[in-house]
């Protein structure tokens, strides 16, 4: 118990800021990042796998990615249940470019949250955290070829999910019109 407690506190001291950055980048919300960080460390404190992990920092990073993307998946489900109120006067054009970029990012992150754990972890580490394939391989306990292959497959899956989403949207627009 003492060893696990020390591991949790050491991880918090050494990797706390980088974990916070990961969670914030994937949720894009400060308040949620704060909540998820608490949940992350409480989960680590009760985890047997964390206590036996070779690299506690990498284990914590993977858990953080999963937590943040799980939150995103749950949130998109809730959003479907309770849509934004229709604003009867939002006829005027808004800053379109900003909106398009923001929506693209949200769409990519939402699709990312629907990938398998290994694939999404690799994509986040490679593109969001900008880590090299060698570092990712070391952190995940795999070899570089496996990581490259995982990233490539995950990217393909992500592309197909985004494509399916876009065609669903255009169908909805057609129905509405």
């Amino acid at each position: 118990m003492d060893r696990r407690r020390n591991d949790v506190l050491a991880t918090l001291a050494a990797h706390g800021p980088s974990l916070h950055a990961i969670v914030l980048r994937l949720t894009l919300r400060h308040d949620v990042a704060e909540d998820l960080m608490q949940e992350l460390f409480l989960r680590l404190a009760g985890s047997k796998a964390f206590a036996t992990a070779d690299d506690p920092g990498a284990y914590a990073a993977c858990t953080a990615i999963n937590l943040a993307l799980d939150w995103r998946r749950r949130r998109s489900r809730d959003r479907q249940r309770a849509p934004m109120p229709d604003d009867p006067v939002s006829a005027g054009p808004s800053p379109l470019a900003t909106l398009v970029v923001a929506e693209q990012t949200q769409a990519v992150l939402d699709a990312l949250s629907r990938l398998r754990a290994a694939g999404r972890q690799v994509l986040v580490m490679r593109y969001v955290q900008q880590e090299s394939y060698e570092t990712i391989a070391r952190r995940l306990g795999k070899d570089v070829h496996q990581v490259r292959s995982l990233a490539s497959k995950a990217l393909m899956k992500l592309r197909s999910k985004l494509g399916a989403r876009a065609s669903r949207k255009s169908e909805m627009h057609r129905e509405q019109s």
Binding site: P17, R25, H30, V124, Y127, V128
Partner: peptide
């Protein structure tokens, strides 16, 4: 990948990180 890479530019403010870690 461009969309994902743009996220790496998001850096939490040191005060916010400090506050979050304190709450943890």
């Amino acid at each position: 990948t461009r969309c994902l890479e743009e996220l790496s530019a998001i850096q939490p403010q040191p005060e916010a990180t400090q506050r979050t870690l304190h709450r943890v």
